[in-house]
């Protein structure tokens, strides 16, 4: 499995896959995609690195503990859910205001942040499982 062709290609494929994952997550609200899909795509990228580079590469790809991602994602989703309570709306009420960025009106639903939280959790969970089941050394 540890062919040098694959290893070389991974240098390009891996960042592109991660980029694709984020893209899928961002467009999820209006097109097929979303946090779960994006997270799983990122997880596939991690698995591919694990396949091509063998054991002990994960710590350099992901220099922090995956549970940081899980905690961060849960916090992000949770905060997105709780913030409407402060304004007197029910839990997890979403808004979709237009944000003017570079002269363009972009539709940014608050649910997007929720979805990004989901993405982080899925990536964290998948990475954690690959770390442990794949017999990796714990990250810092």
């Amino acid at each position: 499995m540890s062919s040098s062709i694959l290893r070389t290609a991974m240098g390009l494929i891996f960042p592109l896959t991660l980029l694709f994952a984020v893209y899928m997550a961002l467009k999820g609200h209006n097109q097929p995609g979303g946090g779960f899909i994006g997270g799983l795509i990122a997880a596939v990228a991690l698995v591919m690195v694990r396949m091509s580079h063998g054991r002990d590469v994960m710590a350099s790809v992901m220099p922090f503990h995956p549970r940081l991602l899980i905690a961060g994602g849960l916090a992000m989703a949770g905060v997105t859910g709780v913030v409407p309570l402060l304004f007197g709306h029910p839990l997890l009420t979403s808004r979709a205001p237009y944000v003017h960025l570079l002269g363009e009106a972009i539709h940014v639903p608050t649910a997007l942040f929720f979805d990004l939280g989901v993405l982080m959790v899925v990536v964290g969970v998948a990475a954690g499982m690959i770390f442990r089941l794949g017999g990796e050394v714990d990250p810092a």
Binding site: F36, L40, V122, V125, A126, M129, R132, L133
Partner: peptide, 20 residues
């Protein structure tokens, strides 16, 4: 189903860990 797939992802990993 989407929810179920993702949950089964967690279940699967947990199950595999239990096996090991």
């Amino acid at each position: 189903i989407l929810t179920a797939i993702v949950i089964s992802f967690g279940v699967m990993a947990f199950l595999l860990t239990l096996l090991v």
